[in-house]
Design a protein around this nucleic acid. Structure first.
Length: 285
DNA sequence: TGCCAGGGTTCTA
DNA sequence: TAGAACCATGGC
């Protein structure tokens, strides 16, 4: 086991960070989190300012959890009103992790019109069946399958991973990514709006999924994904003239541009804090 | 049992 | 171009 002593002036809340719904491969048992990230089976726990972990080195842990990002400065920049202020107080220490782009893309392809437990199940099934088995600090861990591995899977077998109508989207993305292994590097090198358009070239990736991948994998912090929860919060707090229940493309565009102008370059952090602090109907872990 | 969920695509007017 | 229909599944 390796330990990091966190700086008192740089808050970090492991529980908030891993339970807020941004990543789908972590589970908590006996006070410890275990998950699979980028081919590593990682076990980690937090006791106050001590972060103890196995399965990865300190550099990887710092990079994945963005421990070197100045979180107080980020939160100060988005703390614009009592609503986001309350979310910041409730969830202080939540950090946006740096997810592997390929896994993040497929995870959010699987996250359309569904709930978080179902997404976790789909991702876990794909990993168990088509991912590489990993030795680590806990038993039977599987890496998320590489594009080449998923591209070879039959439609029926992928369907059996509970993907439903998303099956063809995953197969198409796997075929493309295996033929263009530099796809993520090319997206990362683009300006934000161009990167967004590039991600939406994948069939099954619309504005919401693209914004999630930009935020959670590529570190475009101005991305502001609008799901049903965020739309509800924005309508109640910031844009009361929003009508109806569905989010039309024009409305999505209006909300994300409002958020970028209002919260600034770290609007994505505001989104995640509002999402994490949302009301009592939250999902179960 | 019905509604809802980290939506997107396709069809139609 | 906007709105409606449709899509599979699982939690509650």
């Amino acid at each position: 086991m390796t330990a990091i002593m966190l700086r008192a002036d740089q808050p970090f809340d492991l529980d908030r960070t891993l339970s807020c719904g941004q990543a789908f491969r972590w589970e908590k048992a006996d006070g410890r989190w275990q998950g699979v990230v980028d081919g590593r089976a990682v076990r980690i726990r937090q006791d106050a300012e001590a972060l103890t972990f196995a399965g990865a080195d300190e550099r990887f842990i710092r990079d994945y959890f963005r421990l070197d990002q100045d979180l107080p400065a980020v939160l100060s920049s988005i703390d614009r009103d009592p609503a986001i202020g309350a979310a910041i107080r409730e969830c202080r220490g939540l950090r946006l992790v740096r997810q592997p782009p390929w896994e993040c893309l497929i995870s959010y392809l699987c996250a359309t019109n569904t709930n978080i437990p179902a997404v976790k199940r789909r991702v876990a099934l794909m990993a168990e069946r088509y991912g590489r088995r990993i030795d680590g600090p806990f038993e039977t861990a599987y890496a998320f399958p590489e594009p080449e591995a998923l591209a070879k899977v039959s439609c029926a077998d992928l369907w059996d991973c509970k993907l439903g109508y998303r099956t063809d989207y995953v197969r198409d993305a796997a075929a493309y990514a295996s033929e263009h292994p530099d796809w993520a590097e090319r997206v990362a090198a683009l300006p934000f709006e161009e990167a967004r358009r590039a991600l939406m070239e994948f069939r099954g990736v619309g504005p919401k999924a693209a914004d999630c991948v930009l935020l959670f994998a590529f570190g475009f912090f101005e991305a502001f994904p609008v799901d049903v929860w965020i739309r509800r919060i924005v309508a109640e707090t910031y844009l009361p003239d929003l009508t109806g229940r569905s989010c039309t493309p024009a409305e999505y565009e209006r909300i994300r541009r409002f958020a970028r102008d209002y919260f600034g370059e770290y609007a994505g952090y505001a989104q995640e804090y509002l999402y994490c602090a949302r009301g009592p109907a939250r999902h179960t872990e």
